[in-house]
Simulated assay, not measured.
Amino acid sequence: MHGSELKDGLHSTPEEDPRPKLWPRVLGSMAIVGVMVGLMIGRLTAPDPLELQQIEPLPNGLAVWFNDEPQVHGEEIEGAVALLFNVHGVAQRGAFKLNGKDVRWRVQRSDKGLLLNLLAARPLHGDWRGAKVDGRWRLEISLREE
Results as ranks from 00 to 15, higher is better:
G94H: 06
M36Q: 04
L114I: 07
V26E: 00
G100M: 06
V90S: 14
V103P: 10
E5S: 14
G3E: 07
W105N: 01
G28N: 12
R93D: 15
P24K: 11
A63D: 08
G94R: 06
F85D: 04
P57A: 15
R25P: 01
R19C: 04
D68S: 15
L39P: 07
L62D: 02
E76D: 10
V81K: 03
L58E: 12
L62N: 02
V26A: 15
V107I: 15
D48N: 04
T45C: 01
L58R: 11
P70N: 04
H88Y: 15
N86G: 09
Q92D: 05
V26N: 00
G34C: 04
P18T: 01
D8T: 02
Q92N: 10
G100W: 03
Q92E: 13
I41C: 06
P18H: 06
R25S: 13
D111Q: 11
W23T: 15
R104D: 09
E16K: 09
G38T: 12
P18Y: 03
N86T: 09
I77R: 08
M40T: 12
A95W: 01
V87E: 00
Q92T: 10
D48F: 01
L98R: 04
N117Q: 13
R19M: 13
M30E: 05
G89C: 05
R43S: 15
L98M: 05
G94T: 12
P59Y: 04
N86Q: 06
M40K: 05
G74H: 03
L84K: 01
Q53T: 11
L114T: 09
P59G: 09
N99C: 01
M40Y: 11
G79E: 08
G38I: 08
A46F: 10
V81T: 08
V87P: 10
P18C: 05
L58C: 01
H11E: 09
V103D: 04
N117E: 13
P59V: 08
R19Q: 13
Q92W: 03
P18E: 01
G38L: 14
P18A: 02
H73T: 07
K97V: 04
A63V: 02
G94D: 07
L84D: 12
Q71I: 11
R106I: 06
V35S: 06
V72G: 01
A95Y: 00
A95G: 09
R106F: 07
F85P: 11
D17W: 00
L50W: 04
W65F: 14
V87G: 03
H2N: 13
L98F: 03
V37S: 15
M30N: 00
G28V: 03
N60T: 12
V72I: 15
R104V: 07
F66Y: 11
S12H: 12
P57K: 02
Q71H: 10
N86A: 09
Q108I: 07
D48H: 06
I55E: 01
T13V: 15
K101I: 02
P70I: 08
A46K: 14
F85K: 06
G9P: 08
R106D: 02
